[in-house]
Simulated assay, not measured.
Amino acid sequence: MDRDDHTRADPQRLKAMRKRADAKLLAMDGLLPELDENALVYRPLEGEADDLVYLGLKDGAPIFAALTEKGDTRPAYEQRPTRALIMRLGARDLAIYAGARSLVDWHARHRFCANCGQPTTLAKGGWQRNCDGSTGCGASHFPRTDPVAIMLVEHNGHLLLGRGAGFPEGAYSALAGFIEPGENIEEAVARETLEEAGVRVQDVTYIASQPWPFPSNLMIGCHAFALDRDIVLDKTELEDARWFSQSEVEEAMARGRGSTSFFAPPPEAIAHTLLAWWLDIKG
């Protein structure tokens, strides 16, 4: 997907894109994608609607998404049916949908200026909202991405995994938390691990990242080594946290719901990718 930023910033060019015969609209029911088998559905773009987000060029054709009246602030674990639906998509379609969902959701929840409370209007092809300078303060607002540190913490061949109150019974995953203002990734990993499990860490390294459109997070996957294995659990953050051996992680990843150790995160989650990476380097 070519995000085509130059077109976003050029009103005349953007208008011409809408009029192209090959312009398409990503079919969505609110925030849910319409699927044909396991693929996204696109329809010909018709009319001169203003409430469209320009997603960019897909195989040279301009792609748009329509705004919706209602966003969704529920955490990801409360949206399992939605996650099950979109996991039928291939990697490319999933990436396109994730971007569209995050943008459409952001517009639905940011119709008023956070500075003065006046209505805002869509700008820059949907990648910006502006407060009217004649009735309001004239501030510009942009889609946000919230960075989240998610980490595998290791000590002598064991991994520290936890479970939140909303997790399915038996499920454990990597610890995670939002990166706070003025904090780098390494500091966030150390702080979150200490706050949630009372474990101090060192030697934080970056592994991989994943956009997570519930509503608009960037999961930054890391690995760290613990200084000890003494857990002091923060019950407001986690329901439980435990150390798991390599053999237990191997069983959980291999047997899925048939595992006797714990239930691993689903394949669509970066925590699953991190566990697979860890097992791979362990050999």
Results as ranks from 00 to 15, higher is better:
residue 1 M to Y: 12
residue 6 H to N: 06
residue 6 H to C: 01
residue 6 H to M: 03
residue 12 Q to H: 10
residue 21 A to Y: 00
residue 24 K to N: 00
residue 25 L to N: 02
residue 25 L to F: 03
residue 26 L to S: 06
residue 29 D to F: 05
residue 30 G to R: 09
residue 30 G to P: 11
residue 31 L to D: 09
residue 32 L to I: 03
residue 33 P to L: 04
residue 33 P to N: 07
residue 34 E to P: 02
residue 34 E to D: 13
residue 35 L to G: 10
residue 37 E to F: 07
residue 39 A to R: 15
residue 43 R to D: 09
residue 44 P to I: 02
residue 46 E to G: 01
residue 46 E to H: 06
residue 47 G to I: 00
residue 48 E to H: 04
residue 50 D to A: 10
residue 53 V to Q: 01
residue 53 V to Y: 03
residue 53 V to M: 04
residue 57 L to A: 07
residue 57 L to E: 09
residue 63 I to D: 00
residue 63 I to N: 00
residue 65 A to Q: 04
residue 66 A to I: 03
residue 67 L to M: 05
residue 68 T to P: 05
residue 69 E to A: 14
residue 70 K to E: 14
residue 70 K to T: 14
residue 76 A to Q: 09
residue 77 Y to M: 12
residue 79 Q to P: 01
residue 82 T to V: 09
residue 84 A to W: 03
residue 90 G to E: 06
residue 90 G to R: 09
residue 91 A to R: 14
residue 92 R to Y: 12
residue 92 R to E: 15
residue 92 R to C: 12
residue 93 D to A: 07
residue 97 Y to W: 15
residue 100 A to I: 09
residue 100 A to T: 08
residue 101 R to N: 12
residue 102 S to T: 10
residue 103 L to H: 04
residue 103 L to D: 02
residue 110 H to L: 00
residue 112 F to I: 00
residue 112 F to A: 05
residue 113 C to E: 02
residue 113 C to Y: 01
residue 117 G to W: 00
residue 119 P to C: 04
residue 121 T to C: 00
residue 122 L to Y: 01
residue 123 A to C: 10
residue 124 K to R: 10
residue 125 G to T: 05
residue 128 Q to N: 08
residue 132 D to E: 07
residue 135 T to H: 02
residue 139 A to C: 15
residue 141 H to A: 08
residue 142 F to R: 08
residue 142 F to E: 03
residue 143 P to E: 06
residue 143 P to K: 05
residue 144 R to W: 07
residue 146 D to C: 08
residue 148 V to E: 14
residue 149 A to T: 08
residue 152 L to D: 02
residue 152 L to F: 01
residue 153 V to T: 15
residue 155 H to N: 12
residue 157 G to K: 04
residue 163 R to D: 00
residue 164 G to S: 13
residue 167 F to H: 14
residue 171 A to Q: 15
residue 173 S to T: 04
residue 174 A to N: 14
residue 175 L to K: 08
residue 175 L to E: 13
residue 175 L to G: 13
residue 176 A to R: 12
residue 176 A to H: 11
residue 179 I to W: 10
residue 179 I to N: 11
residue 180 E to F: 08
residue 180 E to S: 13
residue 180 E to V: 05
residue 187 E to A: 14
residue 190 A to H: 03
residue 190 A to W: 00
residue 190 A to D: 07
residue 193 T to K: 11
residue 194 L to G: 03
residue 199 V to W: 11
residue 200 R to I: 01
residue 205 T to Y: 11
residue 205 T to R: 15
residue 211 P to F: 15
residue 212 W to C: 13
residue 225 F to R: 14
residue 225 F to L: 14
residue 226 A to V: 06
residue 229 R to T: 15
residue 234 D to I: 00
residue 236 T to Q: 14
residue 236 T to F: 04
residue 237 E to D: 02
residue 239 E to C: 06
residue 241 A to D: 08
residue 243 W to I: 01
residue 244 F to Q: 12
residue 244 F to L: 11
residue 248 E to S: 11
residue 248 E to Q: 15
residue 253 M to S: 05
residue 256 G to L: 07
residue 257 R to N: 13
residue 258 G to Q: 14
residue 259 S to H: 02
residue 260 T to F: 10
residue 260 T to P: 01
residue 260 T to W: 05
residue 261 S to M: 03
residue 267 P to H: 06
residue 271 A to N: 06
residue 272 H to C: 12
residue 273 T to M: 09
residue 273 T to W: 02
residue 275 L to R: 05
residue 277 W to G: 02
residue 281 I to S: 12
